[in-house]
Design a protein around this nucleic acid. Structure first.
Length: 193
DNA sequence: CCCTGATTCGC
DNA sequence: GCGAATCAGG
């Protein structure tokens, strides 16, 4: 496969959206994530910051005879994506509300285990709501072994989707959701004996 | 081990 | 220009 205009465009688009190189590669097909990253660099958009004063600091000494001279600077400009101003308005429920939905699901779909929304730290919930804002909002079919399967919204409405963010290896949820889903059953109770 | 992006360098 | 191999880190 070659980098046609369209493919490059898609690459730019996805990279701009914050998609990972592997995801982009997978989407494009015929290329590896390395190819994508390589291209990204060649295109000069390695840094997702883009505008502003993205200072490319370290000027490589040109030449790397030493097998492992890990002497690279670690520029972490922490580019905070300027929150896109007002994105229309959500038709139905602008406020997805926390996962405080009834634990009842019409069909016995192979949904992930219902999180025990008993005593979840407010902070964890806050984190989740935060995360849900940038969730990929996947449908059941789009879920893979590596996407967060945390359900959001009411399955009986259109306002239902799955988190879809990268899940923790071995876990069905992303980090944030793992936090609330895998609460260590009651703090007290279980007495070792 | 899973993943991420970054860099190098032979092609 | 391309991208596998490698590196460095979470």
């Amino acid at each position: 496969m070659s980098w046609t205009d369209e493919r490059v465009e898609l690459l730019k688009k996805m990279w701009g959206e914050g998609q990972s190189a592997s995801q982009i590669a997978k989407e494009l097909g015929g290329v590896t994530r390395n190819a994508v990253i390589g291209k990204v660099h060649r295109l000069g958009l390695s840094n997702r910051a883009g505008s502003g004063g993205a200072a490319k600091p370290a000027a490589q000494p040109k030449a790397k005879p030493a097998p492992k001279p890990k002497v690279e600077a670690k520029p972490k400009p922490a580019a905070q994506p300027a929150p896109k101003p007002a994105e229309a308005s959500v038709p139905t429920a602008p406020r997805p509300m926390s996962p405080a939905r009834r634990a009842i699901i019409p069909a016995g779909q192979p949904l992930p285990p219902q999180p025990s929304l008993n005593e979840i730290p407010a902070e964890a919930l806050a984190k989740v709501s935060e995360v849900e804002k940038k969730a990929k909002k996947l449908s059941v079919m789009e879920l893979t072994e590596k996407t967060c399967k945390w359900p959001v919204g009411d399955p009986a409405t259109d306002d239902f989707w799955f988190c879809g963010l990268p899940s923790q290896p071995g876990k069905p949820y992303c980090e944030a959701h793992v936090g609330v889903a895998f609460q260590p059953m009651s703090s007290r109770r279980d007495r070792r004996r």
